[in-house]
Amino acid sequence: MPRRFLQRYMPHPDTLRRQRSLRFMGHLIGNPALWVLSRRSVANAFSVGLFSAMLPIPFQMVVAAFGAWLARCNLPLSVGLVWITNPLTMPIIFYGNYRLGAWLMDTPAREAPERLSTRWIAEQMADILPALAVGSVVTAVLLAILGNVVIRLLWRWQVSRSWKQRARRRRRRRGRETP
C-alpha cells in the first residue's frame, strides 16, 4: 500500500516539534490533519509541493508549508517536494521555465553567455523576469495538475492491485481448506 511506503520515509511530528528551530511552528506541525496519508491528502500535497518548487522565489518551503495548511494536505510531502529545485537542478529548471515564458510571450529568448556570472544575471534581470515569471507559473500549474492526477491514479491502481492479491490469497486458502 502507498501509505506504508510513505510512512517509512516521513519524519514523526513529535521529532520535528522538539527541534528548537521549528518550535515557533509547533501549532502547525502538531496539527494531525496535516500528517494524514490518504489519497486526497497525498495528491494535493504533490500539487502544492510541485507548484511551490517551480516558483523562482526564496523561501519556497515556507510557501509550500502555508499551501499545505490552506489545502489541508500532507505537510511533510509538500515541503519535501520543494527540493526538486535544489542548487543542482535549479538553473536547468528555471532556464527551461524562462524559455517557455519567452516562447509564450513571443519574445526572443536570450542566450546564456559562455561564462555565466551573477553580474550578467543582474544586468539582464529586467528583461528576463517577465518571461521567467510567466513560464514558471505555467509550469507550476501544469505540474501541479499532472502530479495530482498521476498520484490519484497510482494510488487507485495500487489499492486495486492489493485487493486482487488479497482475493487470490483467500481463494488459495479456501482451495486448501476444502478436501
Rank of each mutant, 00 (worst) to 15 (best):
Q7R: 14
Y9I: 09
Y9H: 13
M10L: 15
M10H: 07
H12N: 12
D14F: 01
D14C: 04
T15N: 10
L16R: 09
M25I: 09
I29H: 09
P32K: 03
L37C: 14
L37I: 15
L37V: 15
V42H: 07
V42R: 06
A43P: 12
N44D: 05
A45M: 04
L50F: 15
S52I: 05
M54P: 01
L55G: 01
P56K: 12
P56V: 08
V63I: 15
F66K: 06
A71T: 08
C73R: 03
N74S: 10
N74K: 13
N74T: 08
N74P: 11
P76V: 06
P76E: 03
P76S: 04
L77W: 09
V79F: 05
G80V: 01
L81V: 09
V82M: 11
W83K: 14
T85Y: 12
M90R: 04
G96Q: 01
L104Y: 00
D106V: 05
P108K: 06
A109E: 00
A112L: 15
A112W: 03
L116R: 07
S117H: 06
T118W: 05
T118H: 04
W120T: 10
E123H: 10
E123F: 03
A126Y: 00
L129V: 11
A131R: 11
V134A: 10
T139M: 15
V141T: 03
N148I: 01
W155R: 07
W157E: 02
S160Y: 12
Q165N: 11
R166Q: 09
A167C: 06
R170G: 04
R173E: 00
R174I: 02
G175L: 09
